[in-house]
Amino acid sequence: MSEIPFRDGPGPSLAPRSLVGDAPLGRRLAEFLRLNCKEQGLFLGAVLLVVAARLILLPGAVEMMAWSITQSLRPFVGAWALAICGYLAIRTLRSGSISKSFDYLWAEVFTWRNAAVAVPALVAAALLMNSFSHFKSAIPTFNPYGLDALFRDADRYLHFGTDPWRWLDAVLGYGTATVILDRVYYLWFFAVYLSMGLVMGLPDKFGIRHQFMLTYVLIWGVLGIIFATALSSVGPIFYDLAYGGPSSFTELIRNLEAVNATWGLNTLQVREVLWGSYVNDIDTVISGISAMPSIHNAMCVLFFLAARHINRWLAAAAAVFALIIFVGSVHLGWHYAIDAYASAFGVALLWKLAGLLTGNAAARRAVAPLHVAEPARP
């Protein structure tokens, strides 16, 4: 939707548009389906494929989905609410009038058109994340962990015969920098949900909405499920637990434990929860172990690719965030460095593919507001 300029003088009315409208229900439903197929049909179709695969391949899928879907939906709803508040705040700063900002909120956000695509997208995203967690927990069932030694050796080969975490140890040490990285690393979840809340819940002003969302589902479905299962691995932080120590990662874990004794690290708490879920065969919305490829790093690359189409300063911030997450993923032991390299390459391809599938020219043009014909007034 094109940007609507602020007006200081008289102008067209920005009265709230009805979310339901006066059109007959059947016509409104047909318009709802047409609009979703046009604006996000590939995204919704890809999510349905993931959910269908889950129902076919994973036992207990319906039961798990029934009790956990609200847990998956809640963060997206909260992110949408935050996005709307941020949208309102920015409009208020630009216009200097909170009442005028609410007028534009009604004119652009609380509309039939925006709600008709935002609500299905939010539900689909929640189903995707819920299904991903179940698939991630099932990775060793389909393909037992066994490629970590290969990835460790490949990491050493690419980094001059040394484990990458040792290069970072020489620069950062294990102390204050570890604590900072540990705290920032888990802001990634906030970034993921907020970005989706912004993209799914607000009007598409930059022409990348469908491309972003389709890349999003491809990252979780292709990289996070298919390739993660084919390249089944646990990562450095679980290496000794999975294969028996000591190993070249034993010292890394001791360093983390030393910092944890003084400061307390989220990393070791999450490690304990994930390993406990694995050995006790418990499926939850936060269970599952997988290293290659890195979804943490993959999503950061997606943020950067999308930010380039919005603002250069936002792109620079996304690049810095991606670098921090990459350093943290290696320093904290979650990933081999090549997990991130593989993810970056994969996301670049998926972003390009999503652009081709959604149609770059169509995606970049300004989308006209949806007008549903209403009965003529006397």
Rank of each mutant, 00 (worst) to 15 (best):
3 E>W: 15
13 S>W: 14
14 L>E: 05
20 V>C: 11
21 G>A: 12
21 G>R: 14
21 G>N: 10
22 D>S: 12
29 L>E: 08
29 L>W: 14
30 A>T: 08
33 L>E: 06
38 K>H: 13
40 Q>W: 05
49 L>C: 15
52 A>W: 14
54 R>T: 04
60 G>E: 08
60 G>L: 09
63 E>S: 10
67 W>R: 15
85 C>P: 05
100 K>T: 11
102 F>C: 13
106 W>D: 09
119 V>E: 05
119 V>L: 11
124 A>I: 03
126 A>R: 04
132 F>S: 03
135 F>E: 07
138 A>M: 12
148 D>Y: 02
151 F>L: 11
153 D>E: 14
153 D>M: 03
154 A>W: 12
159 H>W: 10
169 D>S: 11
177 A>M: 14
179 V>M: 09
192 V>G: 05
193 Y>M: 12
195 S>V: 06
202 L>T: 01
214 L>F: 11
217 V>M: 12
228 A>L: 02
229 T>R: 03
233 S>W: 00
236 P>G: 01
239 Y>R: 01
241 L>R: 10
249 F>H: 09
250 T>D: 01
264 G>A: 07
266 N>C: 05
267 T>W: 01
267 T>K: 04
268 L>T: 06
275 W>R: 02
294 S>C: 09
309 H>W: 12
313 W>K: 11
323 L>W: 08
330 V>D: 02
344 A>C: 13
344 A>N: 11
347 V>D: 14
353 L>S: 04
357 L>I: 13
361 A>K: 15
363 A>K: 10
367 V>C: 07
371 H>G: 00
